[in-house]
Simulated assay, not measured.
Amino acid sequence: MRLSNNLVGILNFLTFVLSIPILAGGIWLAHKANTTVCEKFFEKPIIVLGVFLMVVSLLGFIGACFRVNWLLWLYLLVMFLLIVLLFCFTIFAFVVTNKGAGKALEGKGYKEYRLGDYSHWLQKRVNSTKNWKKIKSCLIDGKVCQSLTKENTTTLSQFYAKNLSPIQSGCCKPSDDCGFQYVSPTNWTNPSGTTTFNDSDCSLWSNDQSTLCFNCQSCKAGVLQNVKSDWKKVAIINIICLVFLVIVYSVGCCAFRNNREDNYRWKPYG
C-alpha cells in the first residue's frame, strides 16, 4: 500500500477515535437529569460535531485503506468544503471582532464597556431577546458575580483596585457614571434617590443577586468583549487547523491518484 494511503488511514483512524468521546459527551449532556439552559445550548453542536467527525473519518479510512475510490472522492469533497468554510469563518471572525474595546478609567483597575463600540452584527446577536435570555441564564448559572462577594473587599478603594473581567465589570456592578454609593461589590445604593439618569443602565441596576446588571447594555458589551477575545484565539487556532487540513487534503489527493492508478493497472484488457 502506498505511503499516502497509509497516512490518510492512520490520520482518519485517530480522528475516529477522537470522535467517540466527543459524541459520548454530547449524548451525556442530552440525558443529564439536571442539565442547565447553558449546557443545553452546547449539547446539539457537540453531538453534531461528534457524528460529523465519525462519518468523515470513516469515509477517509475505508476509502484509503480499502481502495474504495468513490468514498475517497466523497471524503476529499467534504474536506475541500470544510477548508473553504473554515477559511471564510476565520476571515469573518477577524472582521466582526475588529471593533470594540474597553474604556480605561483613571485610578481604577478595571475598564468599562459600551455596547455601541462593537460591530453591528455582534450587537444584533446579543440584542435578540431569545439569545440574551440564554446568555443571561448561562451567566447566572455560572455565578460570575459570586466570586466578588467572597473576596475581602470592604472599602471602595479596594474595589477600585480590583482587576475585574469584562463580564464582571459590565454585569456585576453599576456604571461609574451612575454615581451610586458603594456598600459591597454587588450592593450599591442611589444616594440621590432620583430615577432619571443619562445612562439607561443606571435604572436597570438592582441589588437582587439574580438581577444585578444582567439586563444592562454594559453587561451585553462585557459579553461581547469576551466573545471578541475568544474569537481572536479561535481564529488563530483555525489558521493552524487550516494548514493541517490542507496538508491532509493534499495527502488524500495523492491517495486518490494512487487508487486510480492501481485500478487502471488491474483493469482487465478486452
Rank of each mutant, 00 (worst) to 15 (best):
G60A: 15
G60W: 12
F66A: 09
V68F: 10
L71K: 10
L77P: 11
F80Q: 09
V84D: 02
V84Q: 06
L85R: 09
C88M: 15
C88R: 15
T90M: 07
V95E: 14
V95M: 10
V95Q: 04
T97M: 13
K103F: 08
A104I: 07
L105E: 04
L105W: 08
R114G: 09
D117M: 06
Y118W: 13
Y118T: 12
S119N: 11
W121S: 15
Q123N: 13
K124H: 07
K130G: 10
N131T: 02
W132F: 05
W132T: 00
K133F: 15
K133A: 11
K134G: 03
I135R: 06
S137Q: 08
L139W: 04
I140Y: 10
C145I: 06
Q146G: 08
S147W: 07
N152E: 10
T153D: 06
T155G: 13
Q158P: 07
Q158K: 07
G170C: 03
K173Q: 08
P174W: 02
D176H: 01
C178P: 03
G179L: 00
G179W: 00
Q181F: 02
Q181R: 05
P185C: 00
T186I: 08
W188F: 00
W188E: 00
P191M: 01
S192W: 07
S192E: 09
